[in-house]
């Protein structure tokens, strides 16, 4: 009977498959992690596979936290991260005997956006952002005139990153000075396009997202200039706080350090053991050479040239570990970070 024959063949095939399934497939470079870093890594992987014909790279999008989880279990070779590795992640890696290099690869600027139809917001200070977003604001700060008395009476609607993303971690750290401290009553999404849609349709809406998403939607959204907190430029920039001018995110303001505290470095973490494989060594080398231009192409800001040289030196001198002590720091330049002592 036809049906029976088919069945027989499948059963035999399955048995065979079980026998050979112990063998592992040809060398694949496995990368996973942040959805923010992903476009850069994807671009590098694409070019690398074209240049190296037959190379195999997989790039996953599990979020920074999800990526580190897999990284510290030894499942992947490289972790994409939109924030530095945290203390508990360092401990998990150390327990599993995973040693790694921390390489900053580009800057991103968290961009605060409002709809094009919103004309009354000239600029915002970090204090004002905090007033809108802190946990205590939930159900209380619901109108623009509560943020600044000169703003019109208009319902305030917020949108931003979901709690699993590195973007959320960085935002809360930079604005609230406390990681993961945010009001809960806002449109939260892991997909920045949702924020774009939400904000562009509502005059009273405000959201934050990665600069690449703002640039692609510049005809619908407006980036709000951000006044840096007083501590960064000191008294020199003006007597009264209100007189300080807001800074618009751009490649220039990110690189010269004036768009603070919302510009952030992005990282890749490379497993030391994987780096002993020749194809991964070439890939990381390729990343540091071609990465800057590709990062700029997909809407990020390349680091100063010096930073890539320092990163190469760190690889060569086998500077293993993280430049952060497991705590996210805000407003650090990449060069400062690269010359720091490493912690494991």
């Amino acid at each position: 009977m036809n049906m029976m024959n088919m069945m027989k063949r499948w059963v035999v095939g399955l048995a065979l498959a079980t026998v050979v399934s112990g063998v592992h497939a040809a060398a694949v470079i496995e990368i996973d992690g942040s959805s923010t870093v992903y476009p850069i890594t994807e671009a590098v992987a694409e070019e690398y596979q074209v240049a190296m014909g037959g190379a195999r790279v997989t790039v996953g999008i599990s979020g920074t936290g999800g990526g580190f989880k897999r990284f510290c279990r030894g499942e992947i070779d490289i972790a994409n991260a939109s924030r530095p590795i945290l203390k508990e992640e360092m401990i998990a890696c150390a327990q599993a005997g995973i040693r790694y290099y921390e390489l900053p690869i580009a800057y991103d600027a968290l961009t605060v956006v409002v709809s094009k139809s919103n004309t009354f917001v000239d600029q915002l200070t970090i204090d004002e952002l905090k007033r809108m977003w802190e946990p205590a604001a939930a159900q209380k700060i619901t109108n623009w005139n509560q943020v600044r008395p000169t703003f019109p009476k208009l319902p305030l609607k917020l949108a931003g990153a979901g709690a699993d993303s590195g973007t959320f971690d960085y935002w809360t750290e930079a604005v609230m000075k406390r990681s993961k401290a945010s009001r809960g009553d806002y449109q939260a999404s892991e997909d920045d396009n949702v924020t774009v849609q939400y904000v562009s349709r509502d005059k009273g809406a405000l959201g934050y997202l990665g600069m690449a998403y703002f640039e692609e939607n510049a005809e619908k959204l407006r980036a709000v200039p951000i006044v840096p907190p007083h501590s960064t430029n000191g008294a020199a920039s003006g007597a009264a706080n209100g007189a300080k001018k807001g800074v618009v995110p751009s490649a220039k303001t990110v690189n010269n350090g004036t768009y603070q505290p919302l510009s952030r470095p992005l990282f890749i973490y490379v497993k030391e053991k994987s780096l002993q494989r020749p194809e991964i060594k070439t890939f990381v080398e390729f990343f540091l050479t071609e990465g800057p231009a590709l990062a700029a192409e997909v809407g990020y800001v390349e680091l100063p040239a010096n930073a890539y040289t320092l990163a190469r030196q760190n690889l060569k001198n086998r500077k293993i570990g993280s430049g952060f002590a497991g705590v996210a720091e805000i407003g650090l330049t990449v060069e400062q970070l690269l010359v720091r002592e490493r912690k494991r």
Partner: peptide
């Protein structure tokens, strides 16, 4: 997971 693959299996 959500993975981007630009090669074919063996």
């Amino acid at each position: 997971a959500l993975t981007v693959i630009a090669f074919l299996p063996d």
